[in-house]
Design a binder for these strands. Structure first.
Lengths: 222, 222
DNA sequence: GTCTATACTTGGATAGAC
DNA sequence: GTCTATCCAAGTATAGAC
């Protein structure tokens, strides 16, 4: 309910106006990180994109890096939510690769990973930022490990290579592809790599490879 | 030969003094990129590390980014030279993984890849820098493709997946591992991944996997 | 070739008006 | 809560002394 004396100015003076401004700033920070990178993500650049004043960043977030971390939080939450929704239950590695490819493609399109990459790379320039970023990456790695566990559990590969190591490698590959995709608008190369992974996973699955990978799960009949 | 009138001041006024200063600056730039990242690689920071004056950067290189690109050139040349020396001829994938693991370990230790990663991530903040960096990465990718070709040539895997795609993935993984290794001093995770790759490669090689990979090359008798 | 000094610009952060 | 104005620190780059 509106506080006593509230006028009819609904949008410009509502209770959630502060929250709205914060969100605008967070989204502008994300866009700026994507377009100009960490080094170009100054308070003035972000405020310019947000269409508001530079001083608001310090009023709402205290500092530029705090805003950037808030942006990373927002991206991370949004992505993990989508991941969890997409991966109801993954049976075989081939299925896993297929789902992962779709997710990755969406992330590349939206540029979410760019935010993460820029924050990691930029972290070395600000003392203490590394730990903050690391804490925000932990859920991603954990998620990757969980999904890999559910796909490789019980297979020979799964028992030879710990899932946390595979998860580390998958996240690294993900970040690296994102890095490279910026240089020459080489997004096609990353995407074709995912398609190729699907191919290879299917072949390996059919071959069976002597129990090295789990047996294929039955797909619904046509 | 010394020019006429050259005194006995050998070091402080030799013909190569300018070149020596440039090299000191280049090495300081490399160190600064490693320690402070692209965002922290200012003219003052680099000159401070070099132990000389900030103005020299503009005198010798014209701008800070030019110096940073010169640093990337130096790293790239040094690394490619070492790569070529290490990889005389690679027979099997297992051998390839072994050699690659040793090289990667050296690169991680020396922090060479950090320079590359920071330049890629920082490129988005400076117009035109992306293309310059891309041109300097091309040899790395080309080298990876070449060595992969020589290892997988004629195998089923080699004919299913084009070597340039594998090379792209390998370089991406390499960069991603480097990125992650900064966050939590998690270098151990990256190294154990390489060790694990050696294991897996050995297993796959022994299994043969129905010609999916090339047959093992004979090792020298004990 | 190197250094000091300095002009100029941009960025982080705060004070105070509205 | 937002904006204007401003201070101060840091950065790029140049001029000129040595």
């Amino acid at each position: 309910m509106a506080k006593p004396g509230a006028s009819s100015r609904l949008v410009t003076e509502g209770a959630g106006r502060s929250a709205a401004t914060k969100q605008v700033l967070v989204e502008a920070a994300i866009e700026t990180l994507k377009a100009e990178g960490f080094a170009g993500a100054s308070a003035r650049a972000i405020a310019g994109r947000a269409g508001c004043n530079q001083a608001l960043i310090f009023y709402h977030f205290g500092s530029v890096v705090s805003l950037l971390l808030a942006a990373l939080d927002a991206v991370s939450a949004s992505r993990l939510e989508q991941y969890s929704a997409a991966v109801g239950h993954v049976g075989s590695p081939a299925e896993l690769v297929e789902v992962a490819a779709a997710i990755f493609r969406g992330d590349l399109d939206a540029g979410y990973v760019t935010v993460l990459v820029e924050m990691i790379a930029g972290a070395s320039s600000t003392p203490g930022l590394g730990a903050e970023v690391a804490a925000r990456i932990a859920p991603w790695r954990q998620f990757a490990q969980q999904i890999i566990d559910s796909a490789l559990g019980g297979s020979a590969l799964g028992s030879v290579v710990p899932s946390d190591e595979i998860a580390h490698g998958v996240v690294a590959l993900y970040l690296g592809l994102e890095l490279l995709s910026h240089l020459d608008a080489d997004r096609a190369a990353a995407l074709s790599l995912f398609d190729r992974a699907k191919q290879v996973a299917a072949v390996v699955e059919v071959l069976g490879v002597g129990g090295f990978l789990p047996a294929p799960t039955p797909r619904r009949a046509s």
